[in-house]
């Protein structure tokens, strides 16, 4: 009898847990599968403002839930993805977009990494060229020991 009660309690707990998780991400009444896919794609590109490293699709924050519903309702009104994004940008700034637009304020964000890569590449190219020239000179010149400073030149080559 006691065992049966314990099992019943356990079952109730599982039921409770299942209920809690189903309440976490609410099901929305999509018209068809295509609309659901579109909704998922769109909310993945939008940032949750409360927990800023999560997107709207994954976030369980209260505001994220409200915004998902808002996106859903805008979709029902026949708004395009671009219009829905603009709707949110008007209220929450470009920060809601995980893919920032290309404009003067974001040039550094877009091209900064490329600039750093080019600068790094230039430094490496310069170093390699200098080193190969240094080696060539010591090979073609008189025997190394005769030339003052030859040891130093060899040294700097090894340092890199």
């Amino acid at each position: 009898m006691r065992l049966r009660l314990a099992m019943l309690a356990a079952l109730l707990m599982f039921a409770g847990a299942a209920f809690a998780t189903s309440g976490a991400i609410e099901p929305l009444p999509f018209k068809d599968h295509a609309q659901e896919v579109r909704f998922q794609n769109l909310t993945k590109q939008l940032r949750c403002m409360v927990c800023q490293n999560e997107n709207l699709a994954d976030s369980n924050a209260d505001l994220a839930r409200d915004l998902r519903l808002e996106v859903f309702q805008l979709m029902q009104q026949g708004k395009s993805d671009a219009e829905i994004k603009q709707y949110l940008v008007d209220r929450y700034s470009d920060f809601v977009l995980y893919d920032p637009p290309l404009k003067p304020g974001t040039l550094l964000l877009w091209f900064g990494p490329l600039a750093i890569l080019l600068a790094g590449g230039a430094v490496v190219a310069l170093a390699v060229r200098r080193r190969s020239r240094g080696n060539g000179a010591s090979d073609n010149d008189k025997p190394a020991a005769d030339r003052p400073g030859a040891d130093e030149a060899a040294d700097t080559g090894d340092d890199w």
Binding site: M49, L63, D66, E70, R91, Y92
Partner: peptide
Amino acid sequence: QPGRTAIDFGVYG
């Protein structure tokens, strides 16, 4: 209470 108008104000916290 529903928080709908707060979205128009861009409230996030």
